[in-house]
């Protein structure tokens, strides 16, 4: 086989894998704080892309930096609003009730986006346009390199916040035992609210970054499943698991589609995720006893 093509496959797989990893970052955060997977995370990414791309940049014509600042504020408020209206009333409910509610939230957001922004998908010009970096015939979009850099940056930031700040300690305390945490004077509600805000900001940044590569449209919310899969392959509890899981998923998708069948691409990818769920549900980087659920 052609070495150039293989190199291109590796690079493209890495690029898409990092996008999955970026989306996965938001999942692990909420999971660590409240022990629930935010099934609406993909829709949060979509909302981020719409708010930044469709409203701020395209409709209002804001330049990149104010639009970015606006996005952070909007997404933080959005995350808190979602937590306040859809999560908080159910915080003592069973996990399965929360999951159904979050699923409904994702459905609500997708349909609202259609009503607010219309059914026509939109393109977005990234800071680097469609310029590509070419290494011996294999090409990668500058936008993808930008995504990889920011993902790693966010990963370090998340690691730092979680293990080296008081805030991180609070979050971890709440995750372990809400009641004890509140006895020790930690405002559990505020901590959870903050977690939602932060993970919604992460989703917003993901939306902003991937919109130029793909499109601004409701289809983006489907990427949420891939982010979820990345967490399962990596680990929900290990911060760097998201990125590693994402890259494995991206490379696997690329090579299985190239050498097995591109028709059954999504089926094969789901089979991999299911295989991981059955054989190693804690993920590659997780510890065995961490698996908990219903």
């Amino acid at each position: 086989m052609d070495i150039q093509i293989v190199m291109q496959q590796v690079i493209s797989g890495l690029a898409i894998g990092c996008i999955y990893g970026l989306i996965a970052l938001g999942y692990s955060l909420i999971f660590n704080a409240v022990d629930v997977v935010n099934l609406a995370q993909g829709s949060f990414v979509m909302v981020g892309a719409f708010v930044y791309g469709a409203s701020f940049v395209r409709s209002y014509g804001w330049p990149a930096f104010p639009a970015f600042a606006g996005l952070i504020i909007v997404m933080a408020v959005f995350g808190m609003v979602c937590e306040f209206f859809f999560y908080r009333p159910l915080r003592y409910a069973h996990v399965r009730t929360k999951l159904v509610a979050l699923l409904a939230l994702s459905m609500l957001l997708n349909n609202l986006a259609l009503i607010i922004w219309g059914p026509y998908p939109m393109g977005l010009e990234g800071p680097f346009g469609t310029k590509v970096l070419s290494i011996k015939g294999a090409t990668i979009l500058y936008q993808n390199i930008y995504i990889i850099a920011i993902t790693i940056l966010l990963l370090i930031l998340q690691f730092y916040i979680f293990f080296h700040t008081t805030l991180g300690k609070v979050l971890r305390a709440v995750a372990q035992d809400k009641d004890t945490a509140s006895l020790m004077g930690i405002e559990a509600n505020q901590a959870v609210s903050f977690t939602f805000a932060y993970s919604s900001i992460l989703a917003g940044i993901a939306g902003m970054l991937i919109a130029p590569v793909f499109t601004i449209g409701t289809g983006l919310s489907q990427l949420g499943f891939m982010g979820f899969g990345a967490c399962i392959i990596g680990s929900f509890t290990n911060v760097s698991g998201a990125l590693i899981g994402g890259i494995i998923l991206g490379l696997f998708e690329m090579f299985s589609a190239s050498y097995i069948s591109s028709l059954y691409k999504s089926a094969i990818v789901y089979l991999l995720i299911i295989a991981f769920l059955l054989m190693r549900p804690q993920g590659l980087l997780g510890k065995k006893e961490e698996v908990s659920g219903l």
Partner: peptide, 27 residues
């Protein structure tokens, strides 16, 4: 096998099942 899975793992796995079925039906 799937009932060993709990909570959201089952949620993801079962939605994956739909995509697999649909892929097969279409292709």
């Amino acid at each position: 096998p799937t009932l060993k899975l709990k909570g959201f793992y089952l949620a993801l796995m079962s939605s994956g099942f739909i995509y697999i079925v649909l892929d097969i039906l279409r292709n």
